[in-house]
């Protein structure tokens, strides 16, 4: 899985490309842990994410718990399949998750 980071002042965008599963989740966790200092706005861009399992959800939840102390976090450009996973686990109720826009 590819992880791309774009820093804009105190706003950080992390874009994921590929699959977030038990093997790649650790990598993501390390990346995020090392990048959050001083960040007030975190955007997780899942435009190119094909798949997420409970290992990935765990990383999102932990990141949220951290971010909420220093700012805001939102997840954007979620495709239908991945959205169904967020909905199934009702993560949509606790995190700010946004669908991919129609014309994209």
């Amino acid at each position: 899985m590819n992880i791309e980071k774009i820093l804009n002042g105190t706003e950080l965008t992390i874009a994921l490309d590929g699959r977030l599963d038990a093997n790649t989740a650790d990598e993501l966790e390390t990346e995020i842990v090392n990048s959050l200092e001083g960040i007030t706005g975190l955007i997780i861009d899942l435009d190119k994410l094909e798949y997420v399992s409970s290992a990935g959800l765990r990383v999102f939840l932990l990141t949220y718990k951290k971010m909420v102390k220093q700012g805001e976090m939102k997840i954007v450009n979620v495709n239908e399949d991945v959205m169904s996973i967020f909905e199934m686990t009702e993560f949509t109720d606790i995190l700010d998750i946004n669908k991919k826009e129609e014309n994209k």
């Binding site: 399992s53 409970s54 290992a55 959800l57 765990r58 939840l61 949220y64 718990k65 909420v68 996973i85 199934m88 686990t89 009702e90 109720d93 606790i94 995190l95």
Partner: peptide
Amino acid sequence: DLTLPADERDIGGLGIFMTKKS
């Protein structure tokens, strides 16, 4: 318990729950 707010949510048990639903 999926109704809990973020700071009380636990990941334990989520995997098998997702499996059952899938």
